[in-house]
Design a protein around this nucleic acid. Sequence first.
DNA 1: TTAATCACCTGAGGGC
DNA 2: TGCCCTCAGGTGATTA
Length: 271
Amino acid sequence: MPELPEVETVCRGIAPHVDGQEIQKLIVRNSRLRWPVKRSIAKQLAGLTIENVTRRGKYLLLNTSCGSIVIHLGMSGKISIVPMDTPIRKHDHIDLIFTTKICLRFNDPRRFGAFLWIEADPLQHPLLSNLGPEPLSASFSGKYLFEQAKTCKRAIKSFIMDGKIVVGVGNIYATESLFAAGIHPNRSCNRVTLAECNELVKEIKRILRKAIKVGGTTLKDFLSSEGKPGYFSQKLKVYGRAGEPCLQCKSALVSMQVGQRTTVLCEQCQR
DNA sequence: TTAATCACCTGAGGGC
DNA sequence: TGCCCTCAGGTGATTA
């Protein structure tokens, strides 16, 4: 399931293949993604050149001179760079074919992903304009998190997974970061101190950087654009380990629901 | 205004 | 072996 490190890995993986490429055509085999893919955009895209590939939160932006293709991988989305005559597999919904006969292929079994064409500054689009800071940027600090959290009564885990607060922190990294910071995921935001916010932000940044370095986390669904798995799952300390001993205190890790998401925690180490 | 819940969707895994 | 059921999860929309 792609989170920020996975999307960053894909972004870095596809950029060398698509930067400067001229779009020949768009093939939409299945338009039923999170939002219907308008087949009419194929005419608009033909002839445009991808100037660069960037990322905002979990959105990939393929930027051209007159707009951007915005891709979200959802829960199970994968992007691969393949020769255009590569056989179609199940769930290969979209092909973006370049004049060099290279194809950017979007595969998404669960179809929670998105493929949009935005004819303006994508960062002003409603989907992206309200997003919080990038977690690895200087603007995401302990002080920022504390200021946002101090008047809020939500569970801290739901809070740091809210894209309006900070982008790109999904269930896996929120779970791991809260364990590393020793904070119970169900604690109300307004009961988290500035010192704890500093520690939590430090851990979020550390864990995300580490995950990016090894290419993301492979659980059931994620492979990079080159088909390689990420290796961060081998470093997870709590996620997916309910019932197993805590690596710090040896007591059994427990599983609970926070904001309709499964969370694993150590009740001894997280308060 | 804020927070919680719902809906979307399919593959994996377990039970029978 | 095959069928059925449950679970997993990101995020916008809806509801309380």
